[in-house]
């Protein structure tokens, strides 16, 4: 088997909480991400998905264990792992064009070539005609497309996506999911995609990693053998229902475990029940 592009080895991440004991967000998390795959990290909110992605991007450092890119530990913000933020994080003072050109500009690419690169990705995300608009003038779906174009133009080796479509309406989300699949099929870039929706994971992923309730660990890894290209109709297949039931069984166990733990602590939290069936 080829060397994994991204890997986590027994990673733990603890956060200080006031003067009380530390909060363990992730504990004993190990995972290998294969080059070129679209991997979905699935789990209830609060189980440590974003924390794990921030570790992969080098925004924070693990409390124990190691996070590696091509076998090298990630020790600072890693531009080879491009992050697509849920809240877009577009530069409000830059036009669509300038936002998309940002990555190439930072790499020292000349003006003319930069324009070409930007034009290609603006075309890819179907935003031609909006080059001179500012992010504030665009809808949520269009802004998320700009972030996608911006990160693709920066050409990282891995795309890290933190519930990028969670804030979109159902129809726009579906369109964006199909576009992401098309982009992935064309570029064969490695993608780590976070979601708390089983449906979304089943539509997008090559492999699905189900995370446990906090502290987050890998509960199970499933291969998604649903036929490609996947369109909406894939949800009608018996295989889709079977996989969904299988994943739900894993998730449900975690929800119960989490609920019992909270009850024992006397602080019921609803976080774990947030997974969408």
């Amino acid at each position: 088997m080829p060397e994994p592009i991204l890997s986590a080895r027994a990673v733990a991440k603890r956060f200080p909480v006031g003067r009380g004991p530390e909060l363990t967000a992730i504990e004993g998390f190990s995972l290998d991400v294969r080059e070129g795959e679209l991997l979905c990290l699935l789990g209830a909110s609060g189980c440590g998905k974003s924390t794990m992605l921030n570790l992969f991007a080098g925004f924070t450092q693990p409390s124990a264990g190691a996070v590696m890119l091509r076998g090298q530990p990630i020790t600072r913000i890693e531009p080879r792992c491009g992050m697509v933020f849920q809240s877009y994080a577009l530069f409000p003072w830059k036009t669509v064009q300038a936002n998309v050109e940002f990555g190439p500009k930072m790499r020292g690419v000349g003006r003319a070539e930069r324009r070409q690169i930007a034009a290609r990705y603006i075309d890819l995300v179907k935003l031609i005609g909006f080059e001179d608009h500012y992010p504030a003038e665009l809808s949520g779906g269009m802004q998320q497309r700009v972030t996608l174009a911006r990160i693709l133009a920066a050409d990282p080796e891995v795309l890290l996506m933190d519930e990028p479509f969670a804030a979109l309406d159902a129809m726009t989300r579906q369109v964006m999911q199909e576009e992401l699949l098309r982009l992935h099929a064309e570029s064969r870039k490695t993608i780590v995609f976070i979601t708390h929706s089983i449906d979304e994971a089943l539509i997008l992923a090559d492999r699905i990693v189900v995370m446990s309730a906090r502290p987050g660990r890998v509960k199970t890894v499933l291969d998604n053998n649903l036929p490609t290209p996947r369109r909406v109709a894939v949800q009608l297949l018996p295989e889709f229902a079977r996989l969904k039931a299988e994943i739900w069984a894993h998730v449900e166990e975690e929800v119960r475990r989490h609920d019992e733990a909270s009850r024992r602590r006397g602080s019921p939290t609803r976080e774990a029940s947030d997974v969408q069936a």
Binding site: E78, P79, G82, F85, A89, F91, F102, G103, M106, R150
Partner: peptide, 13 residues
Amino acid sequence: PLLIRAARNLGAS
């Protein structure tokens, strides 16, 4: 600070 993080992630010095 999210924008600063995003810029760094896109390779800004």
